[in-house]
Amino acid sequence: MGVRALLVQAGERLVVDCRWSPVARLLAEGGAGAWRPADGTEADVRVEVEPQHRPFDIRGWRPLARGAHVRDRSVVLHNACGSGFDLCLTVVAEQLQVRARWRPPARERIAALLLRSRFHLLVRAVLLQYPALWWAGHYGRVPLHAGAVTLGRSVPLLAGPGGTGRSTLLLRAVADGGRACADNLCVTDGRDVFGLVEPVRVEGGGGRRMAYGRSERPLPSRVDSLRPDRLVVLCRRPGARPSVRPADPARAARSLVAGTYMAGELRRYWPFAAALALGTGLGPAHPPVTGAAQELARLLPADELVLGDRPDEGLAALYGLVSRPVARTEERP
């Protein structure tokens, strides 16, 4: 079994070629039903998982940091993000090329056996997500921990720290006829949001079991990107009834920034992006998350949606919110 297929990740065309069946199965699952045929597609990011375990030849390369070496516009990361994979990332013209080899130290090998859900998430991150996130950042798109969904003619961007009920609320909206580009991770250019493909993790998902009592399922009716017309900040208050109130733009931006930095999915991304920026001279050493959040909060009307013990009960309040006229009419670029 192998994988040679395309994912549209963070607005980038990512083509994966993996002929090593143990990893191919993980990647096929991580694509959450969004894989497309790769034949004839020009890739922005190309990932090849090599079925060998030899180290990359770095003779003559310059040490960049502990576990990283650089030459020209190529960077080798040893045990990238603690995944057990060595990565050789090379910028060639307008394409990022990634070669991956499974070479885990003893600790990572044991963790891969004992902590299966952690291992699956790390493999998806270093092979399917982080390279596309970084290449999107090279073109000015900024990662956010948020999700966008259509509700009638409105497109709210749902923000808030993990555990507030965003995935549950978004899936209920999709089941009601909406379309979403992501429930968890996306990038933005200040106007549109581009989703990152991954399975949705919710209680009762029915698929692979993950942390916090959740399990996975594909995101139905997924689209590659959406243009939000309002920012909705979610917060959870046990015992409360769902309610909506206007949010101060500065507070809304702070929530979006804090939720992004609190996200466990991105915890290992920041040093990954910094190493590639330093080694290649491309892209920001640190993505301008604060600036992007402030711009979205400036351009979009912002509201706070309070959710109680059952986040799905907030869908009616969300519908009521998006049915009201937009009060702020500032033109967007």
Rank of each mutant, 00 (worst) to 15 (best):
L7C: 11
E12R: 13
V16K: 07
R19K: 01
S21C: 00
P22H: 05
L26R: 13
L26C: 06
W35Y: 04
W35E: 10
W35L: 07
D39S: 13
D44F: 03
V45M: 05
H53V: 10
R54L: 11
F56L: 02
R59E: 15
P63H: 08
L64K: 11
R71E: 13
V76P: 01
N79F: 03
C81W: 06
G82N: 07
G82H: 08
L87K: 02
C88G: 04
L89D: 07
T90H: 10
T90K: 08
V92G: 06
V92E: 14
A93Y: 06
V98E: 06
W102I: 00
E108L: 01
H120Q: 12
L121F: 02
Y130S: 05
A132Q: 01
L133D: 15
P143D: 09
L144P: 07
A146H: 07
L151M: 14
G152E: 14
R153T: 13
P156G: 08
L169C: 11
L171I: 09
A175V: 00
R179M: 12
L185S: 03
V187W: 03
D192C: 12
D192R: 08
E198L: 06
G207P: 02
R208I: 01
A211E: 14
Y212S: 09
G213A: 10
S215V: 03
S215K: 01
R217H: 02
P218D: 13
P218N: 13
L226H: 00
D229M: 02
P238M: 10
R241I: 03
R245Y: 06
A250N: 03
R251I: 01
A252H: 03
A253Y: 12
S255H: 12
A258V: 12
M262N: 11
A277V: 05
A277P: 01
A277W: 11
G281A: 10
P284K: 12
H286A: 13
P287H: 10
V289C: 13
T290H: 09
T290S: 14
L296W: 02
L296E: 01
A297V: 00
R298C: 06
D303Q: 06
G320F: 02
G320P: 07
V326N: 07
A327F: 04
R328N: 01
